[in-house]
């Protein structure tokens, strides 16, 4: 006996189970589905169950033949509806990310500089909405902004307006809905980087004669950059593919790509086109997702 444990068969089996089980699960239920989406995006729609042409044609006399068409992609680029949906989604996601940052930064900064135990209480207030149903919170906004909602009621009785404002079913409602839903995702990473700020550095800078704005732009802001990047991507990425918010709060002209994809699939039942929409959306998302992962790894290192 030399005291060194050699890996036995049982150990290798254990290792295999630990790695293999989640691996196989994700290959089957995460990666394989994307291959299928990609495959169907090259198919033609037909009236059948399932409603698309097969990729491999086994019946052809010459053996196996691949039936692929780029028609769906050509259609996406030709029909204005899709282009407008993509561009509109990017615009709405960008603007709401900026609004979240504008509101979230002072909030995170105030929380980071509040002494304990109040700081933990404020953080809890940021996290709490995250645990309550997203759908029900959007519904609460609908009730607030409706024609007979509290906001209109208040403004009418104060005499500010004499006709109810059309707030619900507008682009503005969608912006508000995204900010309302994703604000916690912006505040938390901002808080994490602002919390690390050493107040002695602030005081030293102030003692040396730096003006408050100078301290903010030269010290606070650069320190917060990782939080700004992480928070912005955490809002931008889900906002881009959002379905529920435009479906409930948006109007007929609020075209967002998640909503368009959903309708293409469930209303028009054009599965191949819906797949092509999904593949293009993924291509748009790849850059921000890769950026996000890059910054996360940098933060971990």
């Amino acid at each position: 006996m030399n005291g060194i444990v050699h890996p036995g068969r049982g150990d290798r089996l254990w290792r295999g189970i630990i790695i293999g089980t989640p691996y196989v699960w994700l290959l089957l239920f995460f990666l394989a589905p994307f291959a299928i989406v990609l495959k169907i995006s090259f198919a033609d729609p037909i009236v059948a169950q399932p409603p698309f042409t097969p990729f491999f044609d086994w019946s052809a006399s010459a053996g196996q033949r691949i039936l692929a068409t780029l028609d769906n992609y050509r259609f996406l680029l030709e029909d204005n509806l899709y282009l407008v949906s993509y561009l509109n989604s990017i615009k709405i996601a960008l603007v709401s990310t900026a609004l979240c940052l504008l509101l979230g930064f002072p909030m995170a900064y105030a929380i980071a500089r509040t002494p304990q135990p109040w700081r933990n209480l404020l953080l809890l207030l940021v996290i709490l909405p995250f645990w309550t149903s997203f759908l029900l919170r959007i519904y609460a906004l609908m009730v607030m902004m409706g024609q007979h909602g509290l906001v209109n009621d208040l403004l009418l009785s104060l005499g500010v307006i004499d006709q109810p404002l059309a707030m619900l079913y507008t682009n503005g409602a969608v912006y508000l809905g995204i900010v309302y839903s994703y604000l916690p995702f912006m505040i938390l990473p901002l808080y994490a980087s602002l919390e690390k700020l050493d107040h002695d550095v602030h005081e030293a800078a102030a003692d040396l004669g730096a003006k408050p704005t100078q301290v903010f732009f030269d010290i606070t802001l650069p320190m917060a950059v990782p939080g700004i990047i992480a928070g912005s991507l955490l809002v931008f990425i889900p906002a881009l593919g959002e379905y529920v918010i435009p479906a409930l709060l948006g109007g007929l002209d609020t075209l967002m790509i998640g909503h368009t994809l959903y309708d293409e699939f469930f209303v028009n039942r054009d599965w191949p086109l819906a797949c092509a929409v999904a593949i293009l959306l993924l291509l748009i998302l790849i850059l921000p997702i890769v950026l996000f992962q890059h910054f996360q790894q940098e933060a971990d290192a």
């Binding site: 691996y23 995460f30 589905p33 299928i36 169907i40 994809l261 599965w271 797949c275 999904a278």
Partner: peptide, 26 residues
């Protein structure tokens, strides 16, 4: 594996839903 763990966190629901349904149909 790292990628397959990280990707679902940021995948839009419409894409996850669509791809899984097509898997079940296939």
């Amino acid at each position: 594996l790292t990628g397959m763990i990280a990707a679902p966190l940021v995948m839009p629901d419409v894409i996850t839903g669509l791809s899984l349904l097509l898997l079940f149909v296939s």
